[in-house]
């Protein structure tokens, strides 16, 4: 507890380029960009695969294999290969981390829609894209959002590790604290990251409540 008071009670930690607000913004910046890029890749791909069933096996197998990639290793390797001039080398492993859960959950969500429902939609004269947009996506939304939530939490957590290769963000407190044996700093950083992850978790719970149609949310969601 004293460590937390040491860290959070020190006004120096609340201002300047190494202050909590700046580090928090940096953290949100590259987590946000990575998540956005991952969504741009994985959502259309997942929708397409789930809707058409084409290339599903390949996509799911490679997504599962990508989950096994150790992010720390990938991060270190890519930064070493490309240099640390921009944030691009750090975005690559974060995007690679976020794509599989979004892709797999979007696909599984669409696949899990009751085939009768799909047939009924076609029977009512909806075209393929309408079936996707008006029936399949709303019904699959809980799983799609679950995928996004897992991806967001993993990106926010892992962006911490990015500090090790010289990037900003909340991980700086942890890495610098460890390097200088400044334990209050390390613990303070860890607590901040954990809080941020919890806020993300909570935010998605709210989004889920607002976006998912009440008729659908009766259904039990599968992890």
């Amino acid at each position: 507890m004293n460590w937390l008071i040491d860290f959070f009670g020190n006004p120096d930690n609340w201002s300047g380029p190494d202050g909590i607000p700046v580090r928090l913004l940096e953290h949100l910046e590259f987590s946000g960009i990575s998540l956005l890029l991952a969504m741009l890749i994985a959502l259309p791909l997942g929708l397409w695969i789930g809707h058409t069933g084409k290339g599903a096996l390949f996509a799911i197998l490679s997504a599962n294999a990508a989950r096994a990639l150790p992010t720390l290793g990938l991060l270190v390797l890519i930064v070493l290969l490309m240099g640390v001039g921009t944030i691009v080398p750090v975005l690559i492993p974060l995007v690679a981390l976020a794509v599989p859960p979004i892709l797999v959950n979007t696909y599984e969500g669409l696949r899990g829609v009751d085939p009768d429902l799909r047939d009924a939609a076609y029977g009512m004269g909806l075209r393929g894209s309408e079936v996707l947009g008006r029936v399949l996506v709303p019904v699959a939304l809980p799983l799609i959002l679950l995928g996004l939530r897992i991806a967001a939490i993993q990106v926010v957590s892992t962006a911490t590790v990015a500090a090790y290769v010289g990037l900003g963000g909340l991980g700086r407190f942890i890495v610098d604290g460890l390097a200088t044996k400044d334990f209050p700093r390390t613990i303070g950083g860890a607590v901040l990251v954990a809080l941020l992850a919890l806020i993300v978790q909570l935010g998605f719970a709210l989004v889920q409540r607002v976006m998912v149609s009440p008729g659908v949310s009766q259904r039990q969601t599968i992890r």
């Binding site: 957590s157 911490t160 460890l178 613990i187 860890a190 607590v191 954990a194 978790q201």
Partner: peptide
């Protein structure tokens, strides 16, 4: 368990 799962591993190691 969801709360625990969302805690970043590095942060928990450190605490």
């Amino acid at each position: 368990m969801n709360v625990i799962y969302s805690l970043p591993s590095l942060a928990v190691f450190i605490v």
